[in-house]
């Protein structure tokens, strides 16, 4: 019976061509340095999953954000683990994406025909930093509040556009409930959507061109 189910699905989904196109591909000899990209993607998925769990209890308002996280840590079964993974995953993701970028630079993997992969990679790096920056405010504790205050102040020093940028980021001249609300929206909808789309392109290009090989003397 399983065979019949498999055949029925295969007729409609085409497992064989999926296997041939995605999995059964030749690759040059890879090293552990080549795992950093997929590790970053794994972290993105893990951050997504733990993040979804956190939104079940988290409230993005100055009155309740702090207490709702307190409740996640103390009251929810394994809440401390989920938040712990999300917290440390964020730190690790920034480090991994950065080292991944350095690896690509030092092995010159960004050169023909992979220039576009690099450009999209930069977008992914910036989006990762954006996730870190917006997520940092959400616990609404002292560290978060003041880090965001100084972070957005930097944007305010841009000549001519500074004041406008600052107001867009904060939703007003000061950090307020609006800031928290829009950082939350950016953190769970806007930036992840951008990140996922860019990741899709990045992956498509990697499958299309294959992973680059470690440079040899003749390269």
């Amino acid at each position: 019976m399983w065979k019949n189910i498999y055949l029925w699905l295969d007729e409609r989904l085409g497992f064989d061509s999926l296997y041939a196109n995605l999995l059964d591909r030749p690759e040059p000899k890879t090293t552990w340095w080549n795992t950093l990209g997929s590790a970053s993607m794994f972290l993105f998925i893990l951050q997504g999953l733990t993040g979804i769990f956190l939104t079940v209890y988290y409230t993005p308002s100055p009155d309740h954000a702090y207490d709702s996280i307190q409740y996640i840590m103390e009251g929810v079964a394994f809440g401390w683990l989920i938040r712990g993974i999300h917290h440390w995953g964020a730190t690790l993701m920034v480090i991994l994406v950065f080292i991944h970028m350095l690896r690509v630079f030092f092995t010159a993997s960004f050169k023909f025909p992979r220039e576009l992969t690099w450009l999209i990679g930069i977008g992914l790096f910036l989006a990762t930093l954006g996730m870190g920056f917006t997520g940092y405010l959400l616990p609404w504790n002292q560290k978060a509040y003041w880090a965001t205050t100084v972070g957005t102040q930097i944007a305010g020093t841009v000549p001519f556009l500074g004041e406008f940028t600052l107001k867009v980021l904060r939703g007003g001249p000061e950090l307020s409930a609006l800031t928290l609300q829009r950082f939350f929206a950016a953190h769970i909808w806007i930036i992840p959507a951008v990140l996922a789309a860019l990741m899709g392109l990045h992956l498509y290009l990697i499958i299309k061109h294959g992973e680059s090989h470690s440079p040899t003397k003749e390269d």
Partner: peptide, 9 residues
């Protein structure tokens, strides 16, 4: 390099 290489899966 691909000839000397490995399989993705």
């Amino acid at each position: 390099q691909l000839d000397k290489g490995e399989r993705f899966w």
